[in-house]
Nucleic acid binder design. Structure first.
Lengths: 344, 344
DNA sequence: GTGAAAGCGCTAACAC
DNA sequence: GTGTTAGCGCTTTCAC
C-alpha cells in the first residue's frame, strides 16, 4: 500500500536488502539476472525508498533549498523573479528526482542568519542556491557557508576563487547596452561605477569602455563617476555629472539602484528623462519596471542560472566538492522608457 | 560545529537523551530545573534535531507539500496566484517551524499521478495542500488521497463530506456582487457562465440568480450566455448579449478573463464602460487592475486560504485526523472603474 | 557478486 | 520525573 519497504522488495526478489539497495542506486557488482529480478519486485510493489531513512544513513537528502528575497516586501513585478528562480531550480530537480524547499527571507530581519542555520541543520539539504541580492550579503551567505552546506551564489558581485558560482557575462552585455545607447545618437554617455570591491562591477565598466570603442566614441574620465551601489550615490553622481559644462545626454549606471538615484536626481533638477537624459541600469530589479519612467536595464536569465546551480549541486552530491569557478550565462537588454533618442 | 546531536546535549546537561527529547518537544513530566539545564545546553551547542532522524522515528516530517498548476503554462498574471499560495502556506510554516516543499504540476501530463505518489512516498510530508483548479481534478486528488497523506483542497468545486477543505463562499459573494450592481440602478443584468466542468462556476451562476431575486429583479434566459472561461468567449458572449433588442446595462462574467473580453468587445462596438455598460468579473487577476477601465471584480483570499489549510495540517499532525467540513473564507468585492450607475 | 551486522539520530513504549 | 531498550528504513563496512 505505497508503504513497501526495502525488506518487502528483498523478500519478494529473494535477495538481501543490500542487493536491493545496490540495484536502486545503480551500483556495480550485481549480476544482470539479479538486477532484473529486483527491478521487477520494485515495480510490482511500487517501491520508493523513504527519503528520511536514506538521508539519515547516507547524509544525502535529495533536497535543495532555494533562498531569495521575500517577495512579501515587493509588488507584482518581483513575482516573475521568484517564479523564474523556482522554475529553473525545479526543472533540474525533476530531472534528478530531487525536491525543492523554498526559503524566502527578509534580510532586514535580525534573526535571518539563525533562521537559515536552523533550516540547514534540520533539513540537511544537498545544497543551497542563493539568489541575488542576498547572494551578496555576508549576513546571509556567511551562516550558510559556515554550516558547511554546498552552496551556489547567483550573480554574486564578489567571487571567491575557491567557490563555484553562476553569473552573467557582464562585460559583454554592458558593451551591448552602451552600443544601444550610442545607436540612439548619444555622444556623451556617462558611466557610474559601483562599489569597487565588487568584481562584477569592474567588469561592467570594462564593458562600457568596450561599447564606446565599438561605437567609435571617445572615452573620457569626465564622464565617469564613482558610486557605491546605493541609490544615494547614484543621486550624488548624477548631480556631479549633470552640472558639468558639457553634461552627458545619457547615464549608464552599474546597477539599478544607482540608476534609480539618477532618475530621482534628474527629476529634482528638472531634467526630463528620457527627453534630455537617457538612463540605463543593470539587474532588472522589480523596482525597475515600477518607477516612472520605467528603467531600461539588463536582465539576467534567472531560470537558466538557477537550473545550472541546481545541476551543479546535484552532480556534486554524488561525488565530492563543487569545482571552483564561475559559470557564465548570457544576459539580455530590457529596453523601457528611460532611454530615448539623444536631445536636439 | 552545527552538528551537535542529541547525545552531545544529553552529555552536556548530564541527563539522558530521552529527557532532551522531552524538553525539545515540550512534553510534560520534566522538572523545571532539568528543563532549564537542558535548554541551556541546547542553546550553548546550538542544537537542532536532525529532521530525517526525527521523521524516521516519529513519522512526522515537519514538511508540507504545496501542489498547484505549473505557472510555466501561463503568463505573468498567474504568478501572483502562486506567490500568494506560497506566502500563505509559508507564514503558517514559519510559525510552527515546518518547511515548505513546492510541487507545481502539469495536469496535462500522463504521469502526473505517479509523480505525485513518488513525492509523497519519498518525502512523507505531514500534509498536502492542493490549490484550484487541480483541487477539482480526480487525476490529481486521487493519487494523493490513496497515498493516505492528509490533504486539504482549496476552493474545490465538489466537496466530500468526509474531508476537510477550504473554500470561498462563491455563491454568497456573487449574490452580493449582483445586489451591488442592482443597487446602481441596473435592471437588466446579464451573466456569462464559465466552463460547465468547473463546479465552482455553477455556484457563481446560482449566486447571480440569488442576487437578482434579492433585488427584486426577474431572471431571464436571454440575459445568460455560455462562455468557456476564455477572453475570446467573453468577447463573443458580449457581442451576442449587446446586440439584442433589449441589451443588458450590466454584464457580470464568471471570471475576469471573460470580463476583460466583454470590455474589449464594448470598446470595439463603441459602447462606453461604465457609462452605457457596467462590467464585473471574478478572481481579481492582476490584469483586472491594469486595464482601462479597471475591472470591478471579486477577490479570493488565497494567501489566507492556504494559511488555514497549513494550520489545519500542522495542528493535525500532532493529533489524529483532519476534522471533516469546509472552512469558508469570505471573498470580497473589489469595486473599481468598470461599474457605475445605470444609464439614463 | 552477495549478505550480515552495525549504525545514522531520533522517538515510542515501557520500565524504574 | 527520568532512563533504558528498541526500533524507524535505509546505507556502510566488511566479511564471505
Amino acid at each position: 500500500m505505497g508503504k513497501a519497504t526495502i525488506d518487502d522488495v528483498a523478500r519478494m526478489a529473494g535477495v538481501s536488502i543490500k542487493t536491493v539497495s545496490r540495484v536502486f542506486n545503480n551500483e556495480p557488482n550485481v549480476r544482470e539476472s539479479t538486477r532484473e529480478k529486483v527491478n521487477k519486485a520494485i515495480a510490482e510493489l511500487n517501491y520508493r525508498p523513504n527519503l528520511s531513512a536514506r538521508n539519515l544513513a547516507s547524509h544525502r537528502s535529495h533536497l535543495i533549498v532555494l533562498v531569495y528575497d521575500d517577495p512579501d516586501n515587493y509588488e507584482l513585478p518581483s513575482f516573475g523573479y521568484v517564479i523564474q528562480l523556482q522554475q529553473g531550480t525545479l526543472s533540474a530537480c525533476k530531472r534528478h528526482r530531487h525536491e525543492l524547499l523554498i526559503h524566502p527571507c527578509d534580510y532586514r530581519s535580525e534573526t535571518v542568519g539563525e533562521e537559515l542555520k536552523a533550516v540547514l541543520d534540520q533539513a540537511r539539504p544537498d545544497g543551497v542556491i542563493i539568489a541575488a541580492p542576498l547572494s551578496n550579503m555576508p549576513k546571509i551567505v556567511e551562516p550558510i557557508a559556515t554550516s558547511n552546506t554546498p552552496h551556489v551564489r547567483l550573480s554574486a558581485g564578489t567571487t571567491n576563487d575557491r567557490e563555484y558560482a553562476v553569473a552573467t557575462d557582464d562585460r559583454e552585455v554592458c558593451a551591448e547596452m552602451t552600443r544601444y545607447i550610442a545607436s540612439l545618437g548619444h555622444k556623451r554617455i556617462a558611466f557610474i561605477k559601483g562599489d569597487p570591491r565588487h568584481k562584477a562591477v569592474a567588469n561592467r565598466f570594462e564593458g562600457y569602455k568596450d561599447g564606446l570603442a565599438d561605437s567609435g566614441l571617445q572615452f573620457s574620465e569626465h564622464l565617469v563617476a564613482d558610486g557605491d551601489n546605493s541609490m544615494a550615490s547614484g543621486e550624488a553622481c548624477a548631480e556631479q555629472l549633470l552640472s558639468q559644462e558639457q553634461p552627458p545626454t545619457a547615464i549608464f549606471a552599474a546597477n539599478d539602484e544607482m540608476a534609480v538615484g539618477v532618475i530621482r536626481a534628474a527629476a529634482r533638477m528638472g531634467v526630463d528623462v528620457p527627453g534630455q537624459l537617457s538612463v540605463a541600469g543593470y539587474d532588472d530589479v522589480p523596482l525597475a519596471s515600477q518607477i516612472y519612467p520605467s528603467l531600461t536595464t539588463i536582465r539576467q536569465p534567472l531560470a537558466e542560472m538557477a537550473e545550472r546551480a541546481a545541476e551543479a549541486i546535484i552532480s556534486v552530491s554524488q561525488d565530492e566538492k563543487l569545482t571552483p569557478g564561475t559559470d557564465v550565462v548570457p544576459a539580455t537588454l530590457q529596453i523601457r522608457e528611460s532611454t530615448g533618442p539623444a536631445p536636439r
